[in-house]
Design a binder for these strands. Structure first.
Length: 327
DNA sequence: ATAACGCCCTGTGTGC
DNA sequence: TGCACACAGGGCGTTA
């Protein structure tokens, strides 16, 4: 459930502390989180040992460390994944899956902790993006990156911030090549998105969750965006005119920027930054998880419906069901 | 080709 | 008390 803001919080933490460090003493404690590395665990370990981190980049919910070997360590947090920077002598987490030593940094090691193991790590090749640029936030050139000093939790220097996107000859991991630019990507092509939505025969929430159309939006922020835009989840995408599309897109961007400014949303201890700290945006939610509570806009009782094997929360008055919706 | 379903995982909460 | 089951849901392989 970490969505764009939560993953970006992690990316910023990693960018600040691991760029310039060299990976060593990689230890895989459970095979499943490395299942996407098809050449096997030994190959995963040997490709990482001795590699130096040049950059930390994100597109949608995918995150990767670009390495001086020309490859990338690709990470997806899935439902419950965490990337933590910890002292090597800190006790192992119950669900610690992969440990990566880091030389030349703060002395902390990088840990991939994942209870449900929907997420994972893989060392993958990079390819040039068809439209140039890595997408998402970040992509800061290594030479401009802050030198890791001090300890996590005691920020030193300026980390990458929104707007520091750099276009150019950027590369993207092969498994991410089919993922669309994300909702906060300055190079998101809204005209292209509009054209693809018009041709789609599906419901609006399905489209918002389709990472090949627009990425970074998950179940929580989809519901929040629809509530803010006063649109029903089953609204047929081919009936969306451009102002309405702009409205829901702006709502998604607004709510994710607000969440990012709060350090992300946290419902429990699963969604944390590299220091294990939770965000504070939960209080800012208007739709997700509010079944039976009063709509923050009109006071009607919020409803929950099961859809796509997920819960959808909405206000039945502000977001009326369309006559011919697509579920 | 597109659209949608089902599976993978584990811990928590609920009902019988 | 213990057991069964629903739920959380992103991404991808399979099916229609």
């Amino acid at each position: 459930m970490p969505e764009l803001p939560e993953v970006e919080v992690v990316r910023r933490g990693l960018a600040r502390w691991v760029i310039g460090t060299t990976i060593d003493e990689v230890e895989v404690l459970h095979p499943r989180p490395v299942r996407r590395h098809e050449a096997g665990i030994d190959d995963f370990v040997s490709r990482l040992n001795g590699a130096t981190v040049l950059d930390v980049v994100r597109r949608g919910k995918f995150l990767w460390l670009s390495l001086d070997s020309g490859e990338a360590l690709l990470a997806h947090l899935g439902m419950s994944g965490q990337l933590l920077l910890e002292a090597p002598d800190a006790p192992d987490e119950k669900h610690l899956r992969v440990r990566l030593g880091l030389r030349g940094g703060t002395g902390r090691e990088l840990r991939f902790v994942d209870q449900r193991m929907f997420g994972g790590l893989a060392v993958v090749d990079l390819v040039k993006t068809p439209d140039g640029g890595p997408g998402g936030l970040g992509g800061v050139p290594a030479e401009d990156a802050p030198v890791p000093v001090g300890l996590p939790g005691e920020p030193a220097g300026d980390g990458p911030v929104e707007g520091e996107y750099t276009a150019g000859e950027a590369l993207i991991p092969v498994p991410v090549a089919h993922i669309a630019r994300d909702a906060l990507d300055p190079l998101l092509d809204v005209d292209l998105l509009a054209a693809r939505l018009r041709r789609r025969e599906t419901g609006l929430k399905r489209a918002l969750l389709d990472q090949t159309l627009i990425s970074g939006i998950g179940n929580i922020y989809a519901d929040e965006a629809l509530w803010r835009a006063k649109l029903h989840y089953a609204r047929a995408t081919e009936t969306l005119n451009r102002p309405t599309l702009n409205r829901v897109l702006a709502a998604a961007q607004d709510v994710m920027r607000e969440a990012l400014a709060q350090g992300g949303t946290s419902f429990d201890s699963l969604y944390v930054d590299v220091n294990g700290q939770s965000g504070y945006f939960e209080r800012g939610l208007d739709a997700y998880g509010r079944e039976g509570e009063a709509c923050h806009r009109c006071g009607s009782q919020m409803r929950r419906e099961t859809f796509m094997n997920r819960s959808s929360f909405f206000c039945p008055k502000c977001q009326p069901k369309p006559r011919s919706g697509r579920f």
